[in-house]
């Protein structure tokens, strides 16, 4: 069967199927029609939801979700770790600034000639020699 014949057979089948289905609907039993009529009556007596509610509810929901996404209240503020705060306190302490200066002095001292002799040179002696 060619593609055209096949399509024609499809169309013929559709037409017969459509006629059958519609005949079935036309022959809906009266008892069932009564039930359907009752359903229609019930639907018609439903209070309509006001238009403003249909717009306001989704808009409100979107606003709440957007607010939550921005604020992210479920995420706790990030606390700096103890190690970082300890290092920072060490640096800003006045006593420790003195210690830093002394460390620089001792490093300079260490670089001087004869620094590793038995008797360490006194500060300033390197310039004198």
């Amino acid at each position: 069967m060619s593609a055209e014949d096949d399509d024609a057979a499809d169309r013929a089948f559709e037409a017969r199927a459509r006629a059958e289905l519609r005949r079935g609907i036309d022959e809906t039993p009266p008892a069932l029609r009564t039930k359907l009529d009752r359903i229609v009556e019930q639907a018609l007596h439903q209070p309509r939801r006001p238009r403003i509610m249909r717009i306001a509810l989704p808009a409100g929901a979107v606003a709440v979700i957007a607010g939550l996404l921005v604020a992210q209240p479920w995420r706790a503020p990030i606390a700096p770790s103890a190690a970082v705060t300890d290092d920072f306190a060490l640096l800003i302490d006045a006593d420790n600034l003195d210690l830093l200066e002394q460390m620089e002095f001792y490093q300079w001292l260490d670089r001087q000639p004869g620094a590793h002799d038995e008797t360490p040179a006194a500060p300033g002696s390197a310039q004198r020699s």
Binding site: I39, Q42, L44, Q46, R48
Partner: peptide
Amino acid sequence: ALDAVQEAMIKLARRYGD
């Protein structure tokens, strides 16, 4: 089927009748 039709009709009438 009756239940489904009823629910669909009620929803249409309440929400989309206008």
